[in-house]
Design a binder for these strands. Structure first.
Lengths: 187, 187
DNA sequence: GTCCGCATGTAACTTGTTACATGATTTA
DNA sequence: TAAATCATGTAACAAGTTACATGCGGAC
């Protein structure tokens, strides 16, 4: 359900094309939700069929028309209702968690390499988020409204990435010890 | 892809029925992956069609037959290959993150209530995990193999839940301040 | 006598992924 | 001249959700 809502949020903040929404999913909203352009176009079509958005086709020279979408009154109402109604707690999902349980059937050294690659990718993400944090939100206590909410979402992204890195480091230490014990069993 | 692998991991650790796998998804593996029984039965059927598992039908009195599944040699090979090959880094997903961005279109007080409900649910989950941690893994440094991996997965669940709670608390503080400012604007 | 646990399944639907397709403009 | 950006889409498939269906045994 959340993709529909994520798109409505994005359009309610400012009208735009499917393409532009796709860009946003790479950044701000993307800290917490992602979608491919196919999903976005498909969902926009459905939102339009349901009367939750309207669009205006804009001709461009040398490019296909673009459709600038705007949230309708019904769309805003749905968004408000959703914001005020409870959402179920989402279960965790982690490929690495499953994979770790499969480690005994594979190769420990390979698993450690994989973990390091993930840690590096997460570290890069974290650095990016921290740069946003420093650049755009130097005085968090003064924030209100949309800016505050965006900041808090960013904080969530930072915390999630940092914790994930910590966990991966813990796993690497554990598996490394196991690997060392295997090559030099305690006598 | 990971559901297939999660089921293979579970069956490789010990053979069992679809029902039993469903139970496991409520606990250990469930810290990091979840599935409904329909998904499990469907996937088992597919794994069987692909020759990755075999099963033995066992008649029971007063109950439908149960099928005890076992991983085949091909299944073990696939599992090992998967364990040794890279997985892409998963993007985050959080309904609450999206919802927070919708807060400006709804009611702040309702949002805070919702956050508190999530915090309570997460706190309960965390307590459960911490009890498992204390009960089953009193001496983590002595663990090896499967037990170690299970412990590390549990640690991930604990860290993720704890961080999430921290984040929610931070969001509640922020939104509460905003709400207070609204009722008593600074003069 | 009603709910819970065991045990499996079909069907319909929604969501998410991957591949393919078009086509001009700008940048390297 | 090759790639990236803007801009939209179809089609096929895989994964996840929700509803419905069956039926016994034991606990409350």
């Amino acid at each position: 359900m959340a993709l529909e809502h994520a798109i409505l949020v994005s359009l309610a903040e400012r009208p735009g094309t499917g393409y532009e929404i796709g860009q946003q999913f790479q950044r701000s909203i993307g800290y917490f939700w992602s979608a491919t352009h196919q999903q976005i176009y498909r969902t926009l079509k459905k939102l339009h069929a349901d009367g939750l958005v309207t669009y205006e086709s804009i001709a461009q020279d040398g490019r296909p028309d673009k459709k600038v979408y705007t949230v309708s009154a019904a769309g805003r109402e749905l968004l408000a209702d959703w914001a005020n109604s409870p959402t179920p707690v989402m279960p965790l999902r982690s490929d690495l968690g499953v994979k770790l349980r499969a480690a005994e059937f594979g190769d420990l050294a390979a698993m450690i390499g994989e973990l390091k690659a993930h840690r590096d990718a997460l570290q890069e993400q974290l650095s990016l988020y921290e740069r946003f944090d420093a650049d755009y939100y130097p005085e968090p206590d003064a924030l209100t409204g949309r800016k505050l909410h965006q900041y808090l979402v960013l904080r969530g992204g930072i915390k999630a990435a940092a914790t994930n890195i910590e966990w991966i480091d813990e796993v690497i230490v554990g598996l490394q010890r196991e690997l060392d014990d295997q090559s030099q069993p305690p006598g």
